[in-house]
Design a protein around this nucleic acid. Structure first.
Lengths: 128, 128
DNA sequence: ATTGACTTTTACGTTAAGGTCAATAGAATG
DNA sequence: CATTCTATTGACCTTAACGTAAAAGTCAAT
């Protein structure tokens, strides 16, 4: 029977606006049914929204997110396209690994800032 | 004697435009000297640019990047400010850990897409 | 002295990802 | 049935992070 979600249910669950969901529909990322004019989102749409938000947090553009979603559910049949896709996958993965490195380095930097701040706090705490 | 860099040296090294570097100066992130009107970037500016680009890859805004840079070189003296900073550091670190999780999940997804594509390739390769 | 490579400032243009607002339409509830 | 939510569509608006173009200065080399 697969529950259907109204637009506001999803905005509340994910902390996004109705405008955002309609925008994702315009962009062809989700395809809610309609009862009259009202949108009803299927569980599959809900999962796609989760994917979109994850991609968004990483910093992917909508175009990149769409590309991944499409690649996932409609792997191309033609040889050239398949090879192209494999290349793009490798590129994206390398990019992601680089970003992971960036993140680790930044976390280290934050640790250092924290340490400095704690030291100063201790000094002030003692001195006052 | 600390080498100084011209703007184009840096644009070439980092693959960014002069406009971008001037923008970063307007934003108060770098402070090149001037010989006449021409900018001359110090090694410290160069390192800051590397940090900016790393933050950019992660998806931080200029405002966030500036905040981290400032926190690093001018830890606040006042107690309230220090505590505030510690809170913000913790927040940012949590955010970064979430993003790393997002990245790992996305890499897994890419692996699956690749696998599918390789399977199809094998089928086609055999069939033709 | 002119060319060519760079550089500067000023200022308007662009793009992505929504925000915001107005007018209208259904749905639900008393 | 009237009212009250909630949704929809369409339109224009916004912000960050630069792009781009114009007009002019600098400096070394030809």
């Amino acid at each position: 029977m697969d529950k259907l979600y109204t637009i506001t249910e999803l905005t509340r669950e994910f902390g996004i606006s109705t405008r955002t969901l309609r925008f994702y529909e315009d962009e062809g990322l989700v395809h809610p049914e309609r009862r009259g004019r009202t949108r009803l989102f299927r569980p599959s749409d809900r999962r796609i929204i989760q994917n979109i938000l994850r991609g968004r947090r990483i910093g992917f553009t909508i175009a990149e997110i769409r590309e991944i979603i499409l690649a996932y559910r409609e792997p191309p049949g033609e040889l050239g396209q398949l090879n192209l896709m494999l290349k793009r996958v490798t590129e994206k993965r390398d990019e992601l690994k680089q970003r992971r490195k960036d993140i680790d380095e930044t976390i280290t930097e934050l640790d250092m800032i924290e340490e400095q701040a704690l030291t100063r706090l201790a000094e002030i705490g003692v001195g006052s």
